[in-house]
């Protein structure tokens, strides 16, 4: 095989696979009776036009033309659909601190895909040390998508809202820029567009979507959105697929599983076996992001210092 596989094979095939799964479900739906366990991916915008193709066993079969694209188009969602979220799902993330060496790939992927303003980031990797004699560790944070989100409580205009799938999103076309949510969020996760965001022409002219969080708008807040647009496409959030160490695991708590693409775990077992916890539990915010403690680490803490900007190399315990 002449594939020039440079270690990102795994990642690519991972994505492609999900699409395959999509087609397969269609096939199951097409050829079996009402045994279909889940409704076929209702997400895809079917074109109604069919294309003929050759099957593995030499049959000629038909599929919708929409599937001819590497990633089938999704129908554009209305604002009210974006506000409701995906029924039956409840997203959850697990961040395994024992695997993190501060590579910041999650951060750069996220910043790149969302055109986050230079200097700001939605994913942050903190250099943590809880007390003087305790061990330092690297702690990536995203928005916690709290189940009792203080940021949503205080928003005066429903510009930030919680959906039935657990995701907390922002409607930048509604936000008045009061920044109360920033003061309310104990995880310092929100950033503000202090000036007109630097965006490529074709991005800036797009209509803002809460699910993609693109394009960011001057005078409104932004933050990690758990990439529901990627999930709709059958892919994983950018930070999850960008991390070469598999630190981020993403999934649906209703399916009781989380995955980083390469490995998939049963969520309840993982949390039990590794003593998962959430940040600032005492505040009652009920985050959707769980952490696995930095024990039996894959990398020594110091290996992460290489990626730290010079002025921050000195540890700050907080």
């Amino acid at each position: 095989m002449s594939c020039n596989c440079n270690g990102n094979c795994e990642k690519n095939s991972r994505r492609e696979f999900l699409l395959t799964g999509l087609l397969a479900t269609m096939a199951v739906a097409g050829c079996s009776d009402d045994k279909t366990p889940f409704t076929p991916e209702e997400n895809v915008a079917l074109s109604g036009e069919k294309v003929k193709l050759l099957s593995v066993d030499g049959q000629v079969i038909e599929v919708d033309k929409a599937f001819l694209k590497p990633v089938p188009d999704l129908p554009t969602l209305s604002n009210s659909e974006e506000r409701k979220g995906m029924p039956g799902k409840k997203f959850v993330m697990v961040i395994d601190l024992s695997r993190c060496k501060n590579l910041k790939k999650c951060q750069s992927a996220c910043n790149h895909m969302h055109f986050v303003h230079p200097g700001q980031s939605w994913v942050k990797i903190y250099q943590m040390q809880d007390a003087e004699h305790t061990a330092p560790y690297w702690q990536p944070t995203t928005c916690m998508h709290c189940d009792e989100p203080p940021c949503v409580k205080v928003c005066p205009v429903d510009a930030t809202f919680k959906r039935q799938d657990g995701i907390v999103l922002i409607d930048s076309n509604r936000c008045i820029g009061c920044r109360f949510c920033m003061a309310a969020c104990p995880y310092s996760t929100r950033v503000f567009n202090w000036e007109t965001p630097e965006l490529p022409e074709e991005v800036a002219s797009q209509h803002y979507s809460s699910e993609t969080s693109v394009p960011q708008i001057k005078g409104t807040v932004g933050k990690c959105d758990f990439c529901p647009d990627m999930v709709r496409k059958g892919e994983l959030p950018h930070c999850v697929s960008a991390c070469p160490n598999g630190v981020f695991l993403f999934g649906d708590i209703n399916e009781d599983s989380v995955t980083n693409g390469a490995e998939t775990f049963r969520f309840s077992d993982l949390i039990k076996d590794k003593s998962g916890y959430r940040l600032m539990e005492d505040l009652g915010t009920k985050p959707s992001v769980y952490y696995l403690p930095p024990v039996n680490r894959n990398f020594p803490f110091e290996s992460g210092l290489e990626n730290q900007p010079a002025e921050e190399k000195t540890g700050s315990h907080h």
């Binding site: 200097g119 944070t141 700050s316 907080h318």
Partner: peptide, 11 residues
Amino acid sequence: HPFLPMQEVPE
């Protein structure tokens, strides 16, 4: 004085 330290931001 946020709960998480101020890191990774411009001075």
